[in-house]
Every structure is written in structure tokens, then in C-alpha cells.
Simulated assay, not measured.
Amino acid sequence: MSGSPAPALASAPVSVVAEHSAAASVAVPVSAAPAAVLPGQAAPAGWAWPVGPPRELARPFEAPASRYAAGHRGIDLVAGEGHPVRSPADGVVTFVGRVVDRPVLSIQHGEGLVSSFEPVSATVSEGDRVLAGQVVGVVATGSHCTARCVHFGVRRHGQDISPMLFLGGLARAILLPLPPTGPVPIPAR
């Protein structure tokens, strides 16, 4: 992938979570979310949503403060057991197996990008080439979600990053000028 991805979402309805907790989450339509959204545009650089519509985000990416700190290193998408999971981009399957107590599937996409899904019963094998949108498995049991979901994570050169960078829905960063240096003027009374 070259350059910065433009904020975009697939044209299907999408929801994001405005608030989440172990007990409940409140879904908000993407149009009400603060992120820049350009409906009708495809995900940048050939990336696609791994689950079909309707798409609902159960838990967002939460960057850890350090490599070993707590955080949520991906996004949780609402999807029931047996729901098909698709490759988000062209790539090669690099891992199919269990991690701790969950079935996991990982795909290498080139340029140091690896996507991972759990819990997913793979319908592909390690070494298989896959295309964007190709079914690679189905949602299994053993999820860390309280409700049925699939966890979708992305790493670039080993660093966890938000999958939303590739699916759209994140506003672009805007650099603001630095405040002037020196003493701050005090208004006259």
C-alpha cells in the first residue's frame, strides 16, 4: 500500500460503537460518528470488509501504550457462528491453528502487512494464495467477545495498527500551527 489511505467505507450500512463495556455496547450509525466518511467508495488499496453487511463494530481498536501493555489490538465485528469470513486483501495464508483456546487465521498481504482473525475455522491452508473478498473461513466459537463476533487485527512490520486505516472511517490527521513562542500577552482590563 502506498501513501495514506483516504477515509472511505464500502457502500453497505455500517455501525460503530459510541460506548462499550463488558455489559453492553451502543451502536451508532456511521453517519453519526465523528470520523470522515465517504459513502459509496471502496476501501483503499483493494482492502475489503471481512464480513458482509450489515456491519457492526462491537469494539474498536485501542492502541496499547507500549508493546506489552493492555489494549485491544484489532476490531471486533458482530458476526454469528458460521458466518463467512473473507480475506480483506490479496495475500498468502501464513498461519492456521489454535492460539491459546481459539482458532486463528493469519494472511500476509505484502509490504509488511498481516491480517489475523479469531475465532475462525479456516477453509484454506497455510501457503494458499487468496484474493480480496475470498471466503477463508467461518466464525467459530471461543471468541473473547461477550456476544458473537470476529476479531480482525492488522500488523504492519509487527506493529499493531487499526484495521480501520484500510477500511476507512478514520478521519485524516490535520496538522495545526504551533502557538507563538514567548510570553503570552495578557489582555488589558
Results as ranks from 00 to 15, higher is better:
59 R>T: 07
61 F>D: 00
61 F>I: 03
62 E>Q: 13
63 A>T: 11
64 P>R: 04
65 A>D: 03
66 S>V: 10
67 R>Y: 11
68 Y>N: 11
71 G>L: 05
71 G>A: 05
71 G>Y: 02
72 H>R: 14
73 R>A: 04
74 G>T: 06
75 I>M: 15
76 D>W: 13
76 D>S: 15
76 D>H: 09
78 V>L: 14
79 A>W: 00
79 A>P: 05
80 G>P: 15
81 E>G: 13
82 G>D: 09
82 G>W: 06
84 P>L: 07
86 R>E: 05
87 S>E: 01
87 S>K: 09
87 S>F: 04
87 S>H: 06
89 A>E: 01
89 A>Y: 02
89 A>Q: 08
90 D>E: 14
90 D>N: 15
93 V>N: 09
93 V>E: 10
94 T>R: 10
94 T>D: 12
95 F>C: 13
97 G>E: 03
100 V>A: 10
102 R>Q: 06
103 P>K: 14
103 P>G: 12
105 L>K: 07
106 S>N: 00
106 S>Y: 00
107 I>F: 07
108 Q>W: 15
108 Q>I: 08
109 H>D: 07
110 G>Y: 00
110 G>W: 04
110 G>T: 05
111 E>C: 15
112 G>T: 01
113 L>K: 03
114 V>M: 10
117 F>A: 09
117 F>W: 08
118 E>Y: 03
119 P>W: 07
119 P>D: 11
120 V>Q: 08
121 S>L: 14
121 S>I: 12
122 A>M: 00
122 A>F: 02
122 A>H: 02
124 V>Y: 02
126 E>F: 10
127 G>R: 03
127 G>M: 11
129 R>F: 01
129 R>V: 02
130 V>I: 09
130 V>G: 09
131 L>S: 15
131 L>V: 12
131 L>T: 15
133 G>K: 00
